[in-house]
Write a protein that binds this DNA or RNA. Structure first.
Lengths: 210, 210
DNA sequence: GTCTATAGGCAGATAGAC
DNA sequence: GTCTATCTGCCTATAGAC
């Protein structure tokens, strides 16, 4: 569903050769958006990185909006797969939350911002199809987090507490913010520290007073 | 130290007439950066908003970098004043933290992102003088929060807990992230909910287990 | 201080040859 | 699919008149 029908396979035999052009465009553009922002990169940047012309990019993605749309769709797809993988790998809610934070840390280690966090900052300048998908990404993340929290409370691995929806929103927002702030410092430790103290407060039992 | 010597006052008698041009430029550019990002606005945007030409802007701020620098400096100055005002108005640490979060909520109500949060997202494309000042802004905020937390623990208005520096970083990062995420939704309530559950966890006593 | 005029470059985008 | 060539428009920035 990404960009083209493209079933009549091109030359590289589709086995495990070099990726096709559309994929390489997405890879390059994705990194550029995560590092420089959607308004901070151009077709020319991608083209020169790939050694092709901008006309070629326009063949695969007619406009910057379509490229952006494809970028988020692929990103959200991969993120969803990573979340599913966490659920099969980690049984308990606290470990799942820690692994979730680890996903963010991995992105940050590549000196990148979360794609959708970046687009959220620029949302005032984005076309509607892109805005909509940014929101859908956040909604999906929240829903997953909420399910994890509810599950953890049900099986006793998480203490009871405030509404799970609010907790889910806090976790996602705080991790996005921790990435945002850590990046100018070039300091992943700063993110890790924020993430672990966040998860510590969410995971620990509520105070006796509560 | 903002932009010009400008002591030989111009026509408007400097009493309480319309603001001078440099100030009006800063006001317009500030809003544009907070809504659209530094790479999402142009001199032409500011000029048309003010009914002047871009050449006039270049007289006051030779380049976009100098404008950005002036923008942050003024923003940081005003933020510092707001923090000082909070300290005189609120005696106890929890109230001070709530007022701090209220500052962010006010910005968000104007449909704006924190200026430095926005610039942090774009930091990969910014000139060094701007990057440096973004970091300085965050450092100042963290230092203030840490002092508030330490003070609250000393006077008993805050429970003891993990390192105050980490707590300060978490608060600032989480509030920046809550703004970032809430803005595409156009939903200030979403921010308020995240802020209050954040402050609730920071303000409440640590768990019996801890 | 603000203007007109303009330079010079880069942006996103398209037509049409190969 | 990818290229060359080109368009139009916007961008930052400057020179010089008023």
């Amino acid at each position: 569903m990404a960009a083209k029908p493209q079933d009549p396979r091109p030359s590289p035999a589709r086995g495990r050769r070099s990726k096709d052009t559309a994929t390489r465009i997405l890879d390059s553009a994705e990194r550029l958006v995560q590092v420089r922002g959607f308004n901070g990169f151009s077709y020319a940047d991608v083209a020169s990185e790939l050694g092709v012309t901008t006309a070629s990019l326009h063949y695969h993605f007619p406009g910057k909006t379509e490229l952006g749309r494809a970028l988020i769709e692929r990103y959200a797809e991969r993120f969803a797969e990573a979340l599913a993988e966490i659920e099969t790998r980690e049984a308990e809610a606290p470990a799942r939350l820690a692994a979730y934070a680890g996903l963010y840390a991995d992105v940050l280690r590549g000196r990148r911002m979360c794609l959708c966090g970046m687009l959220a900052a620029e949302h005032g300048t984005l076309a509607e199809p892109i805005r909509d998908r940014v929101i859908a990404f956040f909604d999906d993340n929240e829903a997953w987090l909420q399910r994890v929290i509810d599950g953890g409370r049900a099986d006793g691995s998480m203490p009871p507490g405030a509404a799970s929806r609010e907790a889910a929103r806090l976790i996602m927002s705080a991790l996005e913010g921790a990435m945002l702030v850590a990046r100018p410092y070039g300091d992943v430790d700063r993110f890790d520290a924020a993430a672990s103290s966040l998860l510590a407060t969410v995971t620990r039992a509520p105070s006796p007073a509560a």
